[in-house]
């Protein structure tokens, strides 16, 4: 079999797996979206109030916090994975939580990775709102709360872009969740391929393990789904950036 035929066969089988809604592939996709979605939701709930606090409230250590956020935007995922792992292993300070090799641990690692990203981009979007908008709110009789709401409305497209960027980063992340999640699938084969349904196996971690096993068509199928998801998120982010 030539390399071209090998690739073509791989793609044909990959599309068969996708369109037949293979349970193994579906379960991996489900775990990916659930873990990344939950991490994004929690990170958003932290990041947006944090970005507003940094923008509107004067407090000691504000500049240090901004530096921390900026540093956090470039955190190496493997380092975050190792850090979380050391915290949650049975002998670690949070070992009592008993979450090592669970989705919760993966959500925690992704939360740490993407919270600074969503905060940083939201902060930039909030800072881009002209000061005159806030002053206009005051001149029309608005309170600090009204000014914050008006800023949120003006920065809405930038903030949505920040959330989508965080979600995209979480979906595409592999190092941290591989360490804390363990890339676990249940034993036994489903749909004729791979192992059982995914427990902590995501699109990215599954691609690494399936490729190392030589299951190229499964890897291609997972890659197509991953790229499609990330592409969709980026198309949405671009759409909101254009509207801004």
């Amino acid at each position: 079999m030539s390399s071209a035929e090998f690739l073509v066969q791989g793609f044909i089988k990959a599309f068969e797996l996708i369109f037949s809604l293979n349970p193994y592939i579906v379960s991996i996709t489900g775990v990916s979206v659930r873990v990344s979605g939950t991490a994004t939701l929690l990170a958003t709930l932290t990041a947006i109030p944090l970005a507003f606090a940094i923008s509107f409230i004067h407090f000691r250590g504000k500049q240090a916090l901004i530096t921390l956020v900026n540093t956090g935007m470039g955190l190496p995922p493997v380092f975050v994975g190792l850090f979380v792992f050391l915290m949650i292993v049975p002998v670690g300070p949070f070992g009592f939580l008993n979450i090592v090799y669970t989705k919760e641990a993966m959500i925690l690692a992704q939360y740490i990775l993407i919270t600074p990203i969503i905060t940083g981009i939201s902060l930039a979007a909030i800072k881009a709102v002209p000061k005159l908008i806030i002053e206009t709110v005051y001149t029309l009789g608005g309170t600090e709360k009204d000014a914050a709401v008006a800023t949120l409305k003006e920065a809405r497209f930038g903030i949505i872009t920040a959330v989508l960027a965080g979600f995209g980063r979480a979906l595409a992340e592999v190092g941290a969740i591989l360490i804390v999640g363990g890339n676990i699938a249940h034993t036994g084969s489903v749909g004729g391929i791979g192992e059982g349904l995914s427990e902590t196996r995501t699109l990215t971690t599954a691609i690494t393990s399936e490729t190392s096993k030589g299951e190229i068509s499964t890897s291609i199928a997972l890659g197509i789904i991953l790229i499609s998801l990330v592409l969709s998120v980026n198309i949405m982010a671009n759409y909101f950036q254009r509207r801004d």
């Binding site: 005159l132 002053e135 206009t136 001149t139 029309l140 009789g141 608005g142 008006a150 003006e154």
Partner: peptide, 29 residues
């Protein structure tokens, strides 16, 4: 402040409809 209003040299416009811009001070009241 709620009894006054100020118009700047270059007005700041909320990124929404004309109606919503004008209604703003009434909505917050």
């Amino acid at each position: 402040m709620s009894r006054m209003s100020m118009l700047f040299q270059r007005p700041a416009i909320f990124n929404t409809s004309v109606f919503n811009n004008i209604a703003y001070s009434l909505v917050i009241r």
